[in-house]
Design a protein around this nucleic acid. Structure first.
Length: 225
DNA sequence: AAGTAGATCAACCGCCTAACC
DNA sequence: CGGTTAGGCGGTTGATCTACT
């Protein structure tokens, strides 16, 4: 059976909604088989998650949402699903699109292509044990945070704590505990350089970094979460 | 009115990870 | 323990819309 691509029709949406009403979400590959939809499981999941879910908010982003996304992006980088998880009613796709089309411009971020962060070389700061106030962690979007190589014991504790708390806060309710208010959301000059950069032209203030808000060590920053 | 460029955003692609066998 | 599969993620594409000439 040939798979259909492109935009979903109203009929397809209805079939998918009806199926989920009866069977619940999940097991997406079964959807096509059981409904006759010529869509792959991934496509069904995406359509549901990004559009058909009843709690998905449509329409313009508010100032408050913009502000929240900017702050979260400064903290988490391009981890859209984590950011979206903190913005009620918004999907990762919405947040990502909104960032790329509106917020990055608003903040004066240029998007540079073909630049991949080299995590191992970017971590030399930690290996040398010289994480100073205001310096930041470089983390690839695909980096398994808990597997970062850390040599120095003190830094290991600090980074491990930070990583654990980022993950925890993203799924829990503790993010408010972060001192986000101390960060200026309109720090456009800090956003001037693009997302992931080679360590050669490392800019510790790039938005994809997890920045230490007040210059204290990471374990202090995340304490009490 | 027609053509073009830029902006927007839904959907796809490829990769990664966890679960299962 | 290795292979397979499904779900999830971020990056990218391309159809459509809008503004401008």
């Amino acid at each position: 059976m040939e798979e259909k691509k492109g935009f979903w029709t109203v009929e397809e949406d209805k079939i998918l909604i009806d199926y989920i009403k009866v069977h619940g979400k999940g097991r997406w590959n079964r959807v096509a088989k059981m409904t006759g939809l010529k869509r792959c499981g991934k496509s069904c999941r995406l359509r549901w998650m990004n559009y058909l879910r009843p709690d998905v908010k449509r329409g313009e982003f508010t100032e408050e949402e913009d502000d929240l996304i900017i702050r979260l992006h400064k903290l988490l980088g391009n981890r859209w699903s984590l950011i979206a998880g903190r913005v009620p009613g918004r999907t990762d796709n919405q947040v990502k699109n909104h960032w790329n089309t509106h917020l990055s411009k608003k903040l004066g971020i240029r998007k540079e292509k073909n630049k991949v962060v080299d995590v191992s070389s970017s971590l030399t700061l930690f290996e040398k044990g010289n994480v100073e106030a205001g310096e930041s962690l470089h983390l690839s979007t695909h980096t398994n945070l808990s597997n970062l190589p850390i040599c120095d014991e003190d830094n290991s504790k600090a980074v491990g704590s930070a990583v654990n708390n980022i993950e925890a806060s993203a799924s829990g309710n503790s993010l408010e505990a972060l001192d986000l208010e101390t960060q200026d959301p309109a720090m456009s000059e800090c956003y001037e350089n693009s997302f992931w950069s080679l360590s050669d032209d490392l800019d510790i203030n790039t938005p994809s970094l997890i920045e230490i808000p007040d210059g204290n060590s990471l374990d202090v920053v995340w304490r009490g979460l």
